[in-house]
Simulated assay, not measured.
Amino acid sequence: MYQKWNDYLGYQGFKYIKPEKAGPLVEEMLALKALGQAARSDFTELAKLLNNKVVPFEMTRVSNWVNQAQIARPHFWCYFKHPKDSQDDVGIAIRLYGQKDDFGISVEVSFVERKKSDRTLAKQHQVLSLPLEGSLYYFVQKDGFSRRMAGTESNRQILKRAVNIGSIRKVLVKYDLPLTPQTQLEDLTDSLAVGFEKVMPYYEATKKREEQ
């Protein structure tokens, strides 16, 4: 599992060409497809095992190994939804992050872009209503680019002001779990379940706007 993810991370941004159109690259494309599918399968296995530990949340479909432009997308993700959540609600997701030889799985409070409504961003911004605790951090999107920000109180106030004036599009709350070749699947799912508990107050904060 670790090795497949590590190998596939080396193909980030690589253009996949269907083997029947790949000419002299056919063997390379077949190998890329096999690796991408195997790495995604392992990520799906991880999500299924975690699913049993975060009831009543339910996993949705794992992202594909290439995007619509057929570019390798090894940073797999899977959203987990509460049965009461609507399609445009904020959820909790796990995501493969990092690069070859330096990567892990993050737990985040975020939403599915293609399912958002005109209310979704306002819900997401509610994560800023609470100060961050422990090893949580912000992941901020501005002008199409995303960057990490420490979860300090000063940064929270900066982000609240930026959101209010519209200079920042969205702010995620994230928790990282670095992986090593020695990481065991059972231990990883246990740690991810703990990650769900850590981000839960911020997920719950996204619901308060509608309760008011």
Rank of each mutant, 00 (worst) to 15 (best):
P74V: 00
D101L: 04
D118G: 03
L188M: 10
Q212K: 15
I168C: 00
I71M: 02
M29Q: 10
F57P: 15
L185K: 07
Q99A: 13
V112H: 09
Y202H: 04
D85C: 06
V127Q: 05
E45S: 15
L172D: 15
L192M: 13
L185P: 04
G144A: 01
A22H: 01
R61S: 14
P56H: 13
K53R: 14
I92L: 09
G23M: 02
Y175R: 07
D118V: 11
A150S: 13
I71C: 12
L121W: 15
L96G: 10
W65N: 09
Q126S: 11
H125S: 14
V55R: 08
G98K: 06
R95C: 08
R156I: 06
A93T: 00
R161A: 15
K142S: 11
G23R: 02
A150W: 05
A150I: 06
E45D: 13
I168Q: 04
E153G: 04
K21H: 14
D89R: 13
P83T: 06
P83M: 06
S191R: 11
K4Q: 14
L32K: 01
G104F: 01
F145I: 11
Q212W: 15
L136N: 06
M1A: 09
F14W: 06
S146L: 11
L179V: 00
S167I: 01
V90K: 02
E27C: 00
K81Y: 08
K33T: 00
D88W: 15
H82V: 06
Y11A: 01
V107E: 10
H82E: 12
L96A: 12
E58P: 05
P201F: 01
F196W: 14
M29N: 01
R40H: 10
K170P: 08
F76Q: 00
R147V: 01
Y97V: 10
A22G: 02
I168S: 07
E133G: 08
K198D: 01
S106V: 00
E186Y: 10
T183S: 14
L121G: 15
E211W: 15
K198G: 01
L179F: 02
T152Y: 09
K116L: 01
A39R: 04
E133N: 10
W65Y: 08
S86T: 08
D7C: 08
M59I: 11
V55P: 07
N155C: 05
S129Q: 11
T120N: 12
E113L: 09
V109L: 02
E108K: 03
L177I: 09
T189D: 13
L188Y: 14
V55F: 12
Q124M: 03
F111E: 13
V26S: 00
Y2H: 09
D7A: 14
K123S: 11
I94F: 07
T152F: 00
I17Y: 09
Q37L: 04
D118Y: 12
T180Y: 03
A150Y: 14
A162E: 07
K48P: 04
S146Y: 01
A150M: 15
A150G: 12
E211L: 15
I17C: 05
A69F: 04
